[in-house]
Nucleic acid binder design. Structure first.
Lengths: 127, 127
DNA sequence: CATACTGTATATACTTGACATATACAGTAA
DNA sequence: TTACTGTATATGTCAAGTATATACAGTATG
């Protein structure tokens, strides 16, 4: 399993795992139904605690990327893109909501928000 | 000065002050150029520390609502709505940016974001 | 059943950031 | 000088986030 962890980057370990796993799944390098490395194995490889890998996997499950079966393992979920998108939208919505609250109390119009959103979405920066 | 502080509401003191001051200014109850209560006076009235009132006033200045003159006091800034709006937009932009980052990695389209934004903006809930 | 895997739950430690403070400093003005 | 103004520093408290060890529970197979 090709997961790389950097301790000197600020981003938490569990998050690094989650992101990279998402990438593997979305790029098809982990096929539908395929088993992920067990929490213990991955923890051993990365020299971290099981609890941390668990947390990463929990996040993946919450977002619909994997299904986890106690006693058996974690498996790549059937590619339910619609569900993943909805989950993502829900998370994005929280941020949009905050933006809206700020905007309304400061006289920023909806069109301005939309305009800004379009600019941001168009940009190619990912980090 | 009619500022009310609730210790049992979760929202920090400095934030309560900032919000209420904004309200007073936007509603014109504090006129342009008028002096705000001094940090010390307000602190005494509210039975809190000067540092806390300072923090509240700093936020107000950062957002362009007041100007503060060391040794003299804090004064309602000339109504520069344009500037206030730009500042607000800048703050909102941070949240929009996060929403976009999430959205892009999960296959959520720009139009979906915009749609959600419109819904949120239309709603009448403020808290 | 025994063994060796899976994931899960609990209680704990560490670190960081947010919030609020007291106290000492510096500018302004009568 | 006195009495106001805002400012800076160093400190204290608390909650949240991150990661952990250890003990528990389900699954499968010889």
């Amino acid at each position: 399993m090709d997961i790389l962890i950097s301790n000197s980057g600020g981003t938490p370990i569990y998050d690094q795992i989650t992101r990279q796993m998402k990438g593997l799944i979305l790029r098809g390098e982990l096929a539908e139904g395929e088993a992920l490395p067990s929490m213990r194995l991955l923890a051993k490889e990365l020299r971290i605690s099981v609890i941390t890998t668990k947390r990463a996997y929990e996040e993946l499950e919450r977002e619909g990327f994997i299904t986890t079966v106690p006693g058996k393992g974690c498996f790549v979920a059937p590619r339910n893109l619609e569900l993943v998108r909805e989950e993502t939208l829900r998370r994005a919505e929280e941020h949009l909501s905050q933006a809206v609250e700020i905007a309304r109390t400061g006289g920023v119009t909806l069109s301005e928000l939309i305009e800004t959103l379009q600019l941001l979405y168009g940009e190619d920066e990912h980090e």
